[in-house]
Write a protein that binds this DNA or RNA. Structure first.
Length: 782
DNA sequence: CCGTGCTAAGTTTTT
DNA sequence: CTTAGCACGG
């Protein structure tokens, strides 16, 4: 009782009372299944937990971590690595809770984070040992592309033969495998050029005091492997290492983990080869398959009992994944009943599919099922649009997780670029972005000259700016003065930045640069939206300042650079979730729709010719299926419009692999007529679809004639309701130019309207989605 | 130097 | 179909 009342920070006193037995065999037997308990109590040393989907993986990690601490381990000397910030946050929260409940110790000082954030942290502390400054910035892939583009131009490499994307992917692959620019091997002409580009790219990165995603990890590995006092300190730093999603580690990450755990040998990895879906990003499935061989005496525990899904869903998942060969045999089981049958929908077009999804969600809403309980998955981001339209048409709240990121918007990147340039004067890329934003008369010609100067004299962009603003030989008087004014502006901002938090600094930037005034002066809806976005960013900065232990400008910039798609998922939004299958990993929902299950969509066209790529697609499908708790819908269509052209669709091979029991099928289409698309074939979709390609029949015969969709299930698309939030009352002065707010589209401007009362239709232009004609139902009057 | 209008191009998954 | 990049005219 006394213990219950002990204050949270009161650690000394807890020793006075007898300690409870928080992890006694009895207790564990009550809270864990035998396999879970085995993993939790295994003594420190190499341990691989093969955790099937929904088998209580996070539970095992938190219990094991807590038990290590209960046994005397210091939380500050434990590092737990995850793949997303969201997973890291969850792990920290659950570990903290368990530690407090059971042994009155918090998780304070525990290192939990993604590979990238932990690397950044190590580099900021010890990176100087390998010549890295503490204040480096992190370039995202857009920055990488721009930097490499400039490198390729300077090397006079023909763009046709060496597209930036392709060169970058080779460089990235090399980095993921631990090959630095110096060590880059080339066997052919292409790689010779890539090697040259790689070296110059790295040179420029270093000059900009910047690093990229791959570099973050590679530098950390180099640091840890170096013969320096810093490396020895790091080797002493951690007693226990835990790694989540181990199947997705690449070679560099794996070596890093081994170095961190080498001294004590206490390394716990948790993963599932069946859920390895990041091979294209360098993940090496062998890391998990060979773990035993690499760690003599390693213990392996398999978790096969699933606590998430119904029997029908689990059987479907098993039958899909069983076709793979690169895996240890494993079969998930559940003590739950069969549950509802899985529903397969086969429609005519992607609109029918979207409408089916929306109608089922609408019908499924009840006291027990809120919008947040539904998730819709797709293979590629481009597929989300039709689904969004269909949900909108039924007024269902939805939220697209990932996709075009908030941080990718132009105005956000501009502001971030200012902050980066203030934090790090050497960041040429950011300087280039903002030097003429808002327009201050510094044109492309001037920027080019400064860029040439940087290249020719091997100076930083900032030095070049300072140089041309004082030396009247280099630029004409007009441009020179303008550049000088910009230099002065940046100096002033830097001077003012001292002592300001990120949010206050951002406001200063918007004010002093005239950015906000420039937008306000435009007085358009787009500009209004941009200002709103900037305010949102500043609000995020404030939130960061509240949360972070030690908020700094670098800290915020790092958080921005390392934010992941799924980090934006918030169940409390109360909306139907739309996301790619990749983003869905690690999440679960009562009802799941997997759409676009067609050959060349899922599995993707780029994968169908390569057996091992198809295995990855199969794992992806397995991940998608195992997200569902109670109800699973799978859908495919016979004709799909994708980037302009319509292509015929064949049911995915994954549908053919489903068991014949526990499935309900809804068909509203018929197979497409034979069409020879070979003459029109263009690009990767290269639409050949001939008789030679195998048809994958579903389990029931397909009707000869199309069956009409149920009547009354579909409203006219584009009909929506808006909430009144403007400067005109209905009937009493609604006019062109009035502002209205729509729950999904935001504020829009009235273009035209017709009718009145309940039949009032208004045409509105929304900055976000364009012009829409809407059935307006005014909910409130001013 | 800047904004507009057009054409052409490219379309997987993301820390 | 969308978006990005480019040429042109002001």
């Amino acid at each position: 009782m006394q213990l219950e009342l002990a204050a949270r920070g009161d650690q000394q006193n807890s020793d006075a009372t007898p300690r409870p037995q928080p992890f006694s065999p009895d207790q564990l037997a009550r809270e864990l299944n035998p396999a879970q308990a085995e993993a939790v109590v295994h003594p420190p040393g190499p341990l691989l937990v093969v955790a099937g989907a929904g088998s209580g993986k996070t539970r095992v990690i938190t219990y094991r971590l807590a038990r290590l601490v209960a046994g005397g381990a210091d939380p500050r000397r434990i590092v737990a690595v995850t793949f997303t910030n969201k997973a890291a946050g969850e792990l920290r929260e659950r570990a903290d809770k368990l530690l407090w409940e059971r042994i009155r110790v918090g998780s304070r000082g525990l290192w939990v984070g993604t590979f990238h954030s932990i690397s950044a942290r190590l580099l900021r502390q010890w990176g100087e040992a390998i010549g890295l400054r503490k204040d480096f910035v992190i370039y995202d892939d857009d920055d990488q592309k721009r930097l490499l583009g400039r490198v390729l131009t300077d090397l006079k490499v023909p763009e046709r033969m060496f597209p930036v994307r392709q060169v970058l992917s080779v460089i990235d692959r090399a980095k993921n495998q631990g090959q630095s620019a110096a060590a880059f091997q080339s066997n052919d002409y292409f790689d010779d050029v890539v090697g040259k580009a790689y070296r110059l790219y790295e040179e420029r990165l270093a000059a900009a005091n910047a690093t990229d995603f791959g570099g973050l990890l590679l530098s950390t590995l180099q640091l840890c492997a170096s013969d320096t006092p810093a490396a020895r300190e790091i080797a002493e730093r951690f007693d226990h290492v835990l790694v989540d999603e181990f199947q997705d580690t690449n070679s560099v990450q794996y070596r890093l983990v081994r170095l961190l755990s080498r001294r004590t040998g206490s390394i716990t990895v948790v993963g599932d080869e069946d859920q390895s879906i990041y091979r294209w990003r360098g993940a090496d499935i062998r890391n998990i398959l060979d773990f035993e061989g690499d760690h003599p005496g390693a213990k392996i525990v398999k978790l096969e009992q699933n606590y998430r899904s119904t029997g029908n869903i689990l059987r479907a998942a098993n039958s899909i994944i069983e076709k793979n060969s690169e895996r240890r045999p494993k079969r998930l089981f559940t003590e739950a009943g069969d549950g509802d049958p899985i529903v397969i929908f086969e429609g005519e077009t992607e609109r029918d599919e979207a409408d089916f999804v929306a109608s089922r969600i609408e019908a499924g809403l009840s006291a027990a099922r809120a919008p947040r309980d539904f998730a819709v998955f797709y293979r590629t981001n481009a597929q989300s649009r039709v689904l969004e339209d269909a949900l909108r048409a039924r007024d269902l709240p939805y939220s697209v997780v990932g996709g075009t990121r908030f941080f990718d918007r132009a105005e956000i990147k501009d502001l971030i670029a200012y902050m980066r340039a203030i934090a790090n004067p050497d960041d040429g890329l950011s300087l280039q972005r903002i030097v003429n934003v808002p327009a201050r008369g510094i044109g492309a010609a001037t920027v080019d000259r400064i860029g040439d100067l940087v290249y020719a004299r091997k100076i930083s962009a900032w030095q070049a700016l300072e140089l041309v603003s004082t030396d009247d030989q280099l630029l004409g008087t007009g441009p020179r003065k303008k550049v000088a004014a910009f230099v002065e502006l940046m100096r002033r901002l830097r001077a003012e930045s001292a002592g300001l938090g990120p949010a206050a600094l951002a406001e200063k930037v918007l004010e002093l640069t005239g950015y906000r005034d420039a937008l306000a002066g435009e007085a358009t809806l787009e500009a209004e939206g941009r200002i709103e976005n900037l305010l949102e960013l500043i609000a995020q900065m404030r939130e960061y300042e509240r949360e972070a232990e030690e908020p700094t400008l670098y800290g915020f910039l790092e958080r921005v650079a390392l934010a992941s798609d799924v980090d934006g998922y918030d169940p409390d939004k109360g909306a139907v979730s739309l996301m790619t299958v990749h983003t869905a990993k690690g999440l679960e929902f009562p009802v799941v729709f997997i759409t676009g299950l067609e050959e060349r969509i899922f599995p993707h066209a780029r994968s169908v010719d390569d057996d091992s790529a198809v295995e990855e697609e199969r794992r992806l499908c397995y991940v998608a299926v195992t997200r569902a708790r109670q109800q699973l819908y799978l859908s495919c269509v016979r004709r799909r419009r994708l980037s302009g052209q319509e292509l015929p669709g064949m049911p995915s091979r994954f549908l053919r692999d489903l068991p014949s029991e526990g499935i309900e099928q809804i068909v509203t289409s018929r197979p497409p007529e034979y069409t020879d698309y070979s003459s029109q074939g263009r690009g990767p979709w290269g639409g050949r679809w001939s008789r030679d390609e195998p048809e994958y029949p579903l389990n029931r015969p397909v009707p000869k004639r199309p069956v009409a969709a149920a009547p009354g299930t579909r409203r006219k698309p584009g009909e929506l309701t808006v909430e009144y939030d403007g400067d005109a009352a209905p009937g009493s002065g609604l006019q062109v130019g009035s502002k209205l707010r729509h729950p999904s589209f935001g504020v829009g401007e009235v273009r035209a309207w017709q009718g009145q009362g309940a039949d009032l239709k208004v045409t509105i232009k929304f900055p976000a989605v364009g012009v829409k004609t809407i059935l307006a139902r005014f909910l409130s009057n001013p």
